[in-house]
Amino acid sequence: MMPIWTQVDDYIEDRLIEADRVLSEVLSANRREGLPEIDVTAAQGKLLQLLVRMKGARRILEIGTLGGYSTIWMARALPEDGTLVSLELEPHHADVARSNIALAGLEAQAEVRTGDARASLEEMEKAGIEPFDFIFIDADKPNNPAYLKSALRLSRPGTVIIGDNIVRGGEVVGRHSTDPRVHGVRAFIDLMAAEARLSATAIQTVGRKGYDGFALAIVQD
């Protein structure tokens, strides 16, 4: 029997998340291409989309593309002149994501850049690009603190920053954990707590992906 939280996810998606052929095909393509099945759930994708709409974001930065599932959810909330830049380390993942983005008809708005995200972020900083309105961090957790520092430099007052997978089945409270991902998340949260420019919180989630959570922050004046 399915765990109750998986049943609840099914209930929520059945009642509140509209059926979407394109997104279903995206997940099928990701599986077919051998990508790890670690995408956000449909309910979480819709949450990101609603947050982008609430913010009225025109420019989105995503750190960690995978196959572009969350990319598509967020890009669909952009206005016609909006843009999304997504950073992906693995060339194969990036190629699959570009194909999926094209399937969704979002090539004009969503760009996938391949390579080490820290280097890509540094390039954007040096180029002095326009700050982003919404930043979603969902990549390798040991580098989360570096990503957050770059995100702050690519932000302005009012920018929303979201960090995924910050509870890690409760391991985040394990101060003596030997898992570098846990250390990365703890350092990420400590940095959020110490940064005067951020007002932040975190929520625990449970569902099809198990026990985890999001960190949410806004850049203050």
Rank of each mutant, 00 (worst) to 15 (best):
S86I: 04
A200I: 07
K126G: 08
D14K: 15
L35Y: 05
R15H: 14
R175F: 11
R15C: 12
A217D: 03
L23P: 05
G207F: 02
Y11Q: 11
M2N: 13
Y11V: 10
Y147R: 02
F136S: 08
D95F: 04
I161N: 12
G158D: 11
N144Y: 15
V173Y: 09
R32I: 03
S155Q: 11
M192I: 06
I137A: 06
S150W: 09
F136R: 07
A215N: 10
G213N: 01
M54Y: 12
R31E: 15
G174P: 00
Q204M: 13
H93K: 11
A43P: 09
E33H: 14
R31W: 08
M1E: 13
R153Y: 02
K46G: 01
D81K: 09
L50Q: 11
A127F: 07
N144L: 05
A119N: 05
A43M: 14
K209T: 13
Q220L: 15
E107Q: 14
H93S: 12
G174F: 10
R31F: 09
T201D: 13
I162L: 15
T65E: 01
G169S: 05
D9W: 02
T159E: 10
S70F: 10
A110E: 08
A75S: 13
D95M: 13
E18G: 13
S28C: 11
G56Y: 10
V172L: 07
E90C: 06
E18R: 14
L103K: 14
G128V: 04
G64D: 01
I4Q: 12
L27W: 08
V206K: 04
H93I: 00
V185C: 10
L154A: 09
G210H: 07
G105K: 03
N30A: 14
I63S: 08
A187Q: 11
Y11L: 14
V185S: 06
G64E: 01
I60Q: 05
R32Q: 15
V206N: 06
L148T: 04
D133S: 06
S177A: 06
G163L: 02
E107F: 03
A187H: 04
D133M: 10
A139G: 01
K46D: 12
V26N: 04
T201W: 13
L121K: 00
I161W: 05
T83M: 14
D10M: 11
I189R: 11
V167P: 05
F132E: 12
S155E: 07
E18Y: 05
L51R: 11
P142F: 00
V96D: 03
L121E: 01
